[in-house]
Protein backbone atom coordinates (compact mmCIF):
# COMPACT_ATOMS: atom_id res chain seq x y z
CA UNK A 1 0.00 0.00 0.00
CA UNK A 2 2.60 2.65 0.94
CA UNK A 3 5.71 2.78 -1.15
CA UNK A 4 7.98 1.59 1.62
CA UNK A 5 11.31 0.30 0.35
CA UNK A 6 12.57 -2.30 2.76
CA UNK A 7 16.11 -1.13 2.40
CA UNK A 8 15.55 2.21 4.12
CA UNK A 9 15.27 0.68 7.54
CA UNK A 10 18.23 -1.58 6.97
CA UNK A 11 20.49 0.72 5.02
CA UNK A 12 21.81 2.45 8.10
CA UNK A 13 23.11 -0.76 9.61
CA UNK A 14 26.72 -1.77 8.95
CA UNK A 15 25.60 -5.35 8.31
CA UNK A 16 23.80 -4.13 5.18
CA UNK A 17 27.00 -2.62 3.84
CA UNK A 18 28.78 -5.87 4.54
CA UNK A 19 26.05 -7.78 2.77
CA UNK A 20 26.29 -5.57 -0.27
CA UNK A 21 30.05 -5.95 -0.35
CA UNK A 22 29.67 -9.73 -0.23
CA UNK A 23 27.13 -9.55 -3.04
CA UNK A 24 29.50 -7.57 -5.22
CA UNK A 25 32.28 -10.02 -4.51
CA UNK A 26 30.21 -13.08 -5.42
CA UNK A 27 28.76 -11.40 -8.48
CA UNK A 28 32.18 -10.30 -9.76
CA UNK A 29 33.78 -13.71 -9.21
CA UNK A 30 31.02 -15.58 -11.04
CA UNK A 31 30.98 -12.95 -13.79
CA UNK A 32 34.66 -13.60 -14.35
CA UNK A 33 33.97 -17.31 -14.71
CA UNK A 34 31.43 -16.55 -17.42
CA UNK A 35 33.24 -13.75 -19.20
CA UNK A 36 36.78 -15.12 -19.38
CA UNK A 37 35.98 -17.95 -21.85
CA UNK A 38 34.13 -15.48 -24.05
CA UNK A 39 36.97 -12.97 -23.82
CA UNK A 40 39.61 -15.60 -24.56
CA UNK A 41 37.66 -16.91 -27.54
CA UNK A 42 37.14 -13.42 -28.88
CA UNK A 43 40.84 -12.68 -28.45
CA UNK A 44 41.77 -15.78 -30.44
CA UNK A 45 39.25 -14.96 -33.13
CA UNK A 46 41.07 -11.67 -33.74
CA UNK A 47 44.42 -13.37 -34.27
CA UNK A 48 43.65 -15.05 -37.59
CA UNK A 49 46.48 -13.14 -39.18
CA UNK A 50 50.00 -13.45 -37.81
CA UNK A 51 51.09 -10.58 -35.54
CA UNK A 52 48.03 -8.46 -36.36
CA UNK A 53 44.73 -8.23 -34.52
CA UNK A 54 41.94 -8.25 -37.05
CA UNK A 55 38.95 -10.07 -38.43
CA UNK A 56 40.88 -12.42 -40.68
CA UNK A 57 39.50 -15.51 -38.90
CA UNK A 58 35.94 -14.36 -39.58
CA UNK A 59 36.75 -13.67 -43.21
CA UNK A 60 38.24 -17.12 -43.60
CA UNK A 61 35.26 -18.70 -41.89
CA UNK A 62 32.77 -17.04 -44.19
CA UNK A 63 34.96 -17.84 -47.18
CA UNK A 64 34.97 -21.55 -46.31
CA UNK A 65 33.03 -23.31 -49.05
CA UNK A 66 31.33 -25.59 -46.52
CA UNK A 67 30.27 -22.90 -44.06
CA UNK A 68 27.49 -21.07 -45.83
CA UNK A 69 25.76 -24.19 -47.16
CA UNK A 70 25.79 -25.73 -43.67
CA UNK A 71 24.62 -22.49 -42.11
CA UNK A 72 21.81 -21.94 -44.58
CA UNK A 73 20.75 -25.56 -44.36
CA UNK A 74 20.49 -25.22 -40.58
CA UNK A 75 18.51 -22.01 -40.91
CA UNK A 76 16.08 -23.65 -43.33
CA UNK A 77 15.76 -26.64 -40.99
CA UNK A 78 15.13 -24.36 -38.04
CA UNK A 79 12.52 -22.30 -39.85
CA UNK A 80 10.77 -25.44 -41.11
CA UNK A 81 10.81 -26.86 -37.61
CA UNK A 82 9.30 -23.70 -36.14
CA UNK A 83 6.63 -23.52 -38.81
CA UNK A 84 5.51 -27.13 -38.44
CA UNK A 85 5.77 -27.00 -34.67
CA UNK A 86 3.57 -23.90 -34.49
CA UNK A 87 1.01 -25.49 -36.80
CA UNK A 88 0.83 -28.49 -34.49
CA UNK A 89 1.20 -26.92 -31.07
CA UNK A 90 -1.09 -23.90 -31.31
CA UNK A 91 -4.25 -25.92 -32.08
CA UNK A 92 -3.23 -28.50 -29.51
CA UNK A 93 -2.76 -25.94 -26.74
CA UNK A 94 -5.95 -24.16 -27.76
CA UNK A 95 -8.00 -27.35 -27.87
CA UNK A 96 -6.59 -28.57 -24.60
CA UNK A 97 -7.42 -25.28 -22.91
CA UNK A 98 -10.85 -24.95 -24.38
CA UNK A 99 -12.35 -28.21 -25.52
CA UNK A 100 -10.45 -31.19 -24.20
CA UNK A 101 -9.20 -30.24 -20.73
CA UNK A 102 -9.11 -33.90 -19.79
CA UNK A 103 -6.27 -34.39 -22.26
CA UNK A 104 -4.09 -31.79 -20.53
CA UNK A 105 -2.22 -34.21 -18.25
CA UNK A 106 -1.46 -36.46 -21.22
CA UNK A 107 -0.18 -33.59 -23.34
CA UNK A 108 1.88 -32.23 -20.46
CA UNK A 109 3.35 -35.67 -19.90
CA UNK A 110 4.34 -35.96 -23.55
CA UNK A 111 5.97 -32.55 -23.49
CA UNK A 112 8.18 -33.85 -20.68
CA UNK A 113 9.48 -36.71 -22.84
CA UNK A 114 12.22 -34.75 -24.65
CA UNK A 115 13.75 -34.12 -21.22
CA UNK A 116 13.49 -37.78 -20.31
CA UNK A 117 14.91 -39.20 -23.53
CA UNK A 118 18.46 -37.91 -24.10
CA UNK A 119 19.14 -36.81 -27.68
CA UNK A 120 21.71 -39.52 -28.17
CA UNK A 121 19.22 -42.19 -27.13
CA UNK A 122 16.53 -40.71 -29.34
CA UNK A 123 18.70 -40.69 -32.44
CA UNK A 124 19.73 -44.28 -31.62
CA UNK A 125 16.08 -45.30 -31.64
CA UNK A 126 15.30 -43.24 -34.74
CA UNK A 127 18.07 -44.95 -36.69
CA UNK A 128 17.03 -48.41 -35.49
CA UNK A 129 13.40 -47.72 -36.35
CA UNK A 130 13.67 -45.88 -39.66
CA UNK A 131 16.86 -47.06 -41.31
CA UNK A 132 15.73 -50.49 -42.31
CA UNK A 133 12.69 -51.88 -44.11
CA UNK A 134 9.75 -51.56 -43.84
CA UNK A 135 10.31 -47.99 -42.71
CA UNK A 136 13.35 -47.03 -44.75
CA UNK A 137 13.38 -43.26 -44.34
CA UNK A 138 17.13 -42.71 -44.28
CA UNK A 139 17.74 -43.98 -47.82
CA UNK A 140 18.56 -40.60 -49.31
CA UNK A 141 20.04 -37.43 -47.88
CA UNK A 142 16.80 -35.52 -48.40
CA UNK A 143 14.58 -38.12 -46.79
CA UNK A 144 16.96 -38.17 -43.83
CA UNK A 145 16.71 -34.42 -43.70
CA UNK A 146 12.93 -34.54 -43.54
CA UNK A 147 13.18 -37.13 -40.79
CA UNK A 148 15.61 -34.84 -38.91
CA UNK A 149 13.19 -31.93 -39.12
CA UNK A 150 10.39 -34.14 -37.84
CA UNK A 151 12.51 -35.15 -34.86
CA UNK A 152 13.32 -31.48 -34.20
CA UNK A 153 9.61 -30.70 -34.29
CA UNK A 154 8.94 -33.33 -31.64
CA UNK A 155 11.84 -32.01 -29.56
CA UNK A 156 10.49 -28.45 -29.77
CA UNK A 157 7.13 -29.43 -28.26
CA UNK A 158 8.09 -28.67 -24.64
CA UNK A 159 9.27 -25.14 -25.42
CA UNK A 160 6.49 -24.38 -27.85
CA UNK A 161 3.74 -25.84 -25.75
CA UNK A 162 4.84 -24.05 -22.62
CA UNK A 163 5.15 -20.70 -24.40
CA UNK A 164 1.79 -21.00 -26.12
CA UNK A 165 0.08 -22.35 -23.01
CA UNK A 166 1.38 -19.47 -20.89
CA UNK A 167 0.26 -17.07 -23.57
CA UNK A 168 -3.23 -18.57 -23.65
CA UNK A 169 -3.50 -18.38 -19.88
CA UNK A 170 -2.41 -14.77 -19.82
CA UNK A 171 -5.20 -13.68 -22.16
CA UNK A 172 -8.04 -15.75 -20.70
CA UNK A 173 -8.76 -17.44 -23.99
CA UNK A 174 -12.15 -18.78 -22.93
CA UNK A 175 -13.65 -15.36 -22.31
CA UNK A 176 -12.11 -13.95 -25.48
CA UNK A 177 -13.49 -16.83 -27.53
CA UNK A 178 -16.94 -16.51 -26.01
CA UNK A 179 -16.92 -12.77 -26.54
CA UNK A 180 -15.94 -13.25 -30.19
CA UNK A 181 -18.58 -15.96 -30.65
CA UNK A 182 -21.29 -13.80 -29.13
CA UNK A 183 -20.34 -11.07 -31.60
CA UNK A 184 -20.89 -13.55 -34.42
CA UNK A 185 -17.33 -14.56 -35.32
CA UNK A 186 -16.67 -18.03 -36.71
CA UNK A 187 -13.79 -20.29 -35.72
CA UNK A 188 -11.28 -19.18 -38.33
CA UNK A 189 -11.97 -15.53 -37.57
CA UNK A 190 -11.52 -16.21 -33.87
CA UNK A 191 -8.27 -18.05 -34.40
CA UNK A 192 -6.67 -15.62 -36.83
CA UNK A 193 -8.11 -12.30 -35.72
CA UNK A 194 -8.44 -12.79 -31.96
CA UNK A 195 -6.21 -15.55 -30.66
CA UNK A 196 -3.11 -15.27 -32.85
CA UNK A 197 -2.61 -11.51 -32.49
CA UNK A 198 -2.88 -11.83 -28.73
CA UNK A 199 -0.38 -14.66 -28.74
CA UNK A 200 2.27 -12.90 -30.80
CA UNK A 201 4.75 -12.59 -27.95
CA UNK A 202 4.24 -16.17 -26.78
CA UNK A 203 4.61 -17.54 -30.31
CA UNK A 204 7.69 -15.45 -30.93
CA UNK A 205 9.46 -16.61 -27.78
CA UNK A 206 8.63 -20.24 -28.47
CA UNK A 207 9.90 -19.83 -32.02
CA UNK A 208 13.13 -18.10 -31.05
CA UNK A 209 13.90 -20.60 -28.33
CA UNK A 210 13.41 -23.41 -30.83
CA UNK A 211 15.62 -21.56 -33.28
CA UNK A 212 18.42 -21.20 -30.73
CA UNK A 213 18.29 -24.91 -29.97
CA UNK A 214 17.97 -26.24 -33.51
CA UNK A 215 20.45 -23.98 -35.28
CA UNK A 216 23.60 -25.54 -33.79
CA UNK A 217 22.21 -28.95 -32.82
CA UNK A 218 24.93 -31.58 -33.04
CA UNK A 219 23.98 -34.98 -31.66
CA UNK A 220 21.04 -35.95 -33.84
CA UNK A 221 22.30 -34.32 -37.03
CA UNK A 222 25.69 -35.99 -36.58
CA UNK A 223 24.38 -39.54 -36.38
CA UNK A 224 21.94 -38.92 -39.22
CA UNK A 225 24.90 -37.79 -41.33
CA UNK A 226 23.50 -34.34 -42.03
CA UNK A 227 25.72 -31.50 -43.23
CA UNK A 228 24.26 -28.91 -40.90
CA UNK A 229 25.97 -26.34 -38.73
CA UNK A 230 26.46 -28.60 -35.69
CA UNK A 231 28.51 -31.30 -37.43
CA UNK A 232 30.25 -28.60 -39.45
CA UNK A 233 31.36 -26.83 -36.27
CA UNK A 234 32.51 -30.08 -34.70
CA UNK A 235 34.57 -30.82 -37.78
CA UNK A 236 35.96 -27.29 -37.85
CA UNK A 237 37.35 -27.58 -34.32
CA UNK A 238 39.36 -30.57 -35.40
CA UNK A 239 40.65 -29.23 -38.72
CA UNK A 240 41.26 -25.49 -38.26
CA UNK A 241 43.08 -23.33 -35.73
CA UNK A 242 41.52 -19.87 -35.62
CA UNK A 243 38.20 -20.28 -37.40
CA UNK A 244 36.56 -22.22 -34.56
CA UNK A 245 36.99 -19.19 -32.32
CA UNK A 246 35.27 -16.97 -34.87
CA UNK A 247 32.60 -19.65 -35.25
CA UNK A 248 32.01 -19.81 -31.47
CA UNK A 249 31.63 -16.03 -31.31
CA UNK A 250 29.16 -16.08 -34.19
CA UNK A 251 27.18 -18.89 -32.49
CA UNK A 252 27.18 -16.97 -29.25
CA UNK A 253 25.94 -13.86 -31.02
CA UNK A 254 23.08 -15.82 -32.61
CA UNK A 255 22.01 -17.28 -29.26
CA UNK A 256 22.30 -13.86 -27.68
CA UNK A 257 20.18 -12.29 -30.41
CA UNK A 258 17.46 -14.92 -30.03
CA UNK A 259 17.34 -14.61 -26.23
CA UNK A 260 17.65 -10.84 -26.36
CA UNK A 261 14.60 -10.55 -28.61
CA UNK A 262 12.61 -12.90 -26.33
CA UNK A 263 13.52 -10.77 -23.34
CA UNK A 264 12.77 -7.55 -25.12
CA UNK A 265 9.34 -8.44 -26.47
CA UNK A 266 8.50 -10.29 -23.24
CA UNK A 267 9.23 -7.24 -21.16
CA UNK A 268 7.22 -5.03 -23.48
CA UNK A 269 4.20 -7.27 -23.24
CA UNK A 270 4.33 -7.71 -19.47
CA UNK A 271 4.46 -3.95 -19.09
CA UNK A 272 1.47 -3.77 -21.36
CA UNK A 273 -0.43 -6.29 -19.26
CA UNK A 274 0.48 -4.57 -16.02
CA UNK A 275 -0.84 -1.29 -17.30
CA UNK A 276 -4.04 -2.98 -18.31
CA UNK A 277 -4.22 -4.44 -14.81
CA UNK A 278 -3.97 -1.15 -12.98
CA UNK A 279 -6.55 0.47 -15.19
Amino acid sequence: MMPSPVSTAVAVKPSATRKRLGSWLIFSAVSLYFLIPLGATFYWSLRGQKDVLGFEAYRKLFADTNFLPAFSESIVNAVATIFISLLIVVPTAYWVTLRLPKLRPVVEFITLLPFVIPGIVLVFGIIRLYSRPPLLLTATYDSSRILLICVYVALSFPYMFRSVDNGLRAIDVRTLTEAAQSLGANWTTILFKVIFPNLRVALLSGALLTFAIVIGELTIALYMAQHTLGPYMANLTRSKVYEPSAMAIVAFAITWAAMGIIDFVGRGSSKHLQMADTE
Binding site: I36, P37, T41, W44, P244, A248, G260
Partner: peptide, 27 residues
Protein backbone atom coordinates in the same frame (compact mmCIF):
# COMPACT_ATOMS: atom_id res chain seq x y z
CA UNK B 1 19.23 -12.34 -19.99
CA UNK B 2 22.76 -13.69 -19.89
CA UNK B 3 21.54 -16.86 -18.16
CA UNK B 4 19.03 -17.42 -20.95
CA UNK B 5 21.89 -17.23 -23.43
CA UNK B 6 24.41 -19.30 -21.47
CA UNK B 7 21.90 -22.04 -20.61
CA UNK B 8 21.37 -22.51 -24.35
CA UNK B 9 24.98 -22.11 -25.33
CA UNK B 10 25.94 -25.75 -24.81
CA UNK B 11 27.49 -27.87 -27.55
CA UNK B 12 30.34 -27.25 -29.93
CA UNK B 13 30.76 -23.47 -29.48
CA UNK B 14 31.01 -23.87 -25.72
CA UNK B 15 33.59 -26.60 -26.09
CA UNK B 16 35.59 -24.42 -28.51
CA UNK B 17 35.42 -21.46 -26.13
CA UNK B 18 36.95 -23.59 -23.39
CA UNK B 19 39.63 -24.97 -25.68
CA UNK B 20 40.68 -21.39 -26.40
CA UNK B 21 40.62 -20.61 -22.68
CA UNK B 22 41.96 -23.64 -20.85
CA UNK B 23 43.18 -25.91 -23.64
CA UNK B 24 46.88 -26.60 -24.04
CA UNK B 25 47.39 -23.26 -25.78
CA UNK B 26 44.41 -21.51 -24.21
CA UNK B 27 44.66 -17.93 -23.07
Amino acid sequence: TFSGVAANFAGVPLASAYVFTLGRVGL
